[in-house]
Design a protein around this nucleic acid. Structure first.
Lengths: 110, 110
DNA sequence: TAATATAATCGTATAAATACGATTATTGAA
DNA sequence: TTCAATAATCGTATTTATACGATTATATTA
């Protein structure tokens, strides 16, 4: 089987003016992070509460703690949320700066 | 194994003011459509060319015709692109109206 | 120091996504 | 009508994502 597009080093992505590789990466990763029901739910929950601990999400979502932790990892690695350790808990909140950038990149795309 | 969040009929998603179920569905599906390298590439290609046939995409992308057809199906079902049959070809272009709506929904989210 | 609380990670099962070649359906041209 | 071109669909292999319970690591409290 051939490789996925992301694994082909000879493929040069379609260029857009004022659209860097980093911009492209942001659009890909943020879109991917938001394109899942559990993660969009975490996002909107956080957006309402401003910030919250994992415990609150575990109480709210009908998913196992380990599953939520996995989704939080995806959200964190894409930059959509940030987590600050505070005692035995971790305090999550939305990375507004990155989301503003995503918003402006979507604006550029259309 | 328990079901995925999307299959749980008892779970009521986190409500946001002025954010309907349809809005939520658009954010989910458009994000999912754009959150894949091949599909984002198709999107930017179309965005540059204004419109194009599948053949052009098959020439451009290092992927099999059947694979590209599958990605076009995802993009179509999310509403991101529209396809108009013209002879033996299909002419694709970006659904600007939906993308504008997505853009404004992301704006609402942040 | 021991017990508790919290969240991450590990191991693993299952489902979904991605990819291909082959086939099919449809349209337009010869 | 037959042939060629185009794109969708089928069947299938492989990878990735999603989910769980169990375990681990760390920090706070008793």
């Amino acid at each position: 089987m051939t490789k996925k597009l992301s694994e082909l080093d000879y493929f040069i992505p379609c260029c857009l003016e004022d659209f860097t590789d980093e911009d492209r990466k942001i659009v890909l990763e943020v879109s991917n992070a938001l394109g899942n029901e559990a993660r969009l739910e975490i996002f909107t929950f956080l957006r309402n509460k401003q910030s919250c601990m994992t415990t609150q999400l575990v109480d709210y979502l009908p998913l196992a703690q380990s599953t939520i932790s996995q989704h939080l990892k995806v959200l964190k690695s894409s930059g959509v949320i940030t987590g600050t350790i505070s005692g035995t808990s971790t305090n999550y909140c939305i990375n507004t700066a990155l989301m503003q950038r995503y918003y402006s990149l979507i604006g550029k795309l259309i």
